[in-house]
Simulated assay, not measured.
Amino acid sequence: MGILEALEYLLGKGYAPRRGFYIGLGHDEEVGGLKGALNMVRVLKQRGVQLSFVLDEGLAIADGIIVGLEGPAALIGLTEKGMAHVKLRVSTAPGHASMPPRETCIGILAAAVKRLEENPMPRLFGYGPERETFEHLAHKFGLPLKFIMSNLWLFSPVLGRLLERKPETNGLVRTTTAVTMFNAGVKDNVLPSHAEAHVNLRIHPAQSLQEVLDQIHSTVGDQRVKIELISGFEAPPVSSSDEKSFGFQIIKKTVLDVFPTVTVAPGICIANTDSQHFKDLTKDIYRFLPVWLTPGDTQRIHGINERISKKNYEESRQTFRAPEYYAGG
């Protein structure tokens, strides 16, 4: 909505871009973009289009989210984590609740889920683009954190342990494991014949999908628990962010024009977007939305009272109205 309002404003001012650009508004981004973004890519390929860069939603302006950071930081995602949807299933003989076995299928599966939650994936901080984030932000921390951030060649393990303490930053450190559904039983006096749980994993760029599956099998360690990969993909390539990076520098300049008090840094999006479908059309895909994230906001994403302030909405429109945002003016 903010993008369309901004375009109306620019058209009313007689704006004529120096370069062509496309606005892609898909209807199914939250479920993978298989009918929205994927069809847009198909049409663009048919037309022989190659893009300088792609910009999608993703990261935001973090204010008070990263412990010890002095001031807000606008994080532009250079990549995003991979994803795996895994189903765990246990089947046992049904029966009457008055004669229960020592372990029911619910108990077996619950124990497997507990092992997954108590044994997280390995700490991988420093092996992906998250290291670049903190190297860029080092000067915005006080001592001793500034010294640690400036010497990540030595202190990456230390910083990883600090970041994993909060859910908001634990996703930068490792592949995360979230049990999102658990189904079993149909009646209170009947032993169920099967139980299943669904696990959502967001895969760190330094880890492959197969490595994640191997780790799940090893952690569950019970042949009675059948493990099935429903869907999954690895993290996409990391986009450029140096001084010669056309897309990154355009986004950075626009953000600083609208939000002059922020520090801009590259980052990794711990969620998923449908921008991954555009990887054959460009080598640079960025993920950023000009909205503020403050303590408490992260819990509202896909949760209760998800919102944006009127002031921030206007700031977003102001960002989208900047001609530089559209391929350099």
Rank of each mutant, 00 (worst) to 15 (best):
E103I: 00
L289I: 12
E80F: 03
F320N: 06
G48L: 09
F278G: 01
S91G: 02
A60M: 14
A322W: 00
P72Y: 02
I308G: 08
C105Y: 04
V113S: 09
G2K: 08
M1R: 13
V49M: 06
K13V: 00
I203D: 03
S150M: 05
H27G: 04
T176Y: 05
Q223N: 07
H277L: 14
L229S: 07
I203Q: 08
F320S: 02
L88E: 05
A93D: 07
F21H: 12
S239E: 05
I270M: 09
A111N: 13
M121N: 00
L143I: 07
Y286S: 09
S156Y: 07
L163N: 09
S91Q: 15
L109C: 13
A6W: 00
V49Y: 10
I250T: 07
L289Q: 13
G221Y: 00
M99C: 10
P17M: 02
R307P: 01
N170F: 06
D214P: 00
D188Y: 12
G64C: 11
T175W: 02
V43K: 13
E135N: 13
Q46Y: 04
Q210R: 15
Q46A: 14
G12A: 12
L162Y: 03
L75E: 14
A97E: 05
W153A: 12
P237F: 08
G68N: 04
G68C: 09
L7W: 01
L44D: 08
L69A: 05
G36A: 14
R42P: 00
D63V: 01
H277G: 02
T180L: 05
E132D: 14
G160D: 11
I66H: 08
S316R: 10
D280V: 11
P236Y: 11
V67A: 10
G328V: 00
G68P: 06
G68K: 10
T319D: 00
G247W: 02
G160E: 07
P72I: 04
V238R: 12
A112M: 04
G232Q: 14
E80Y: 03
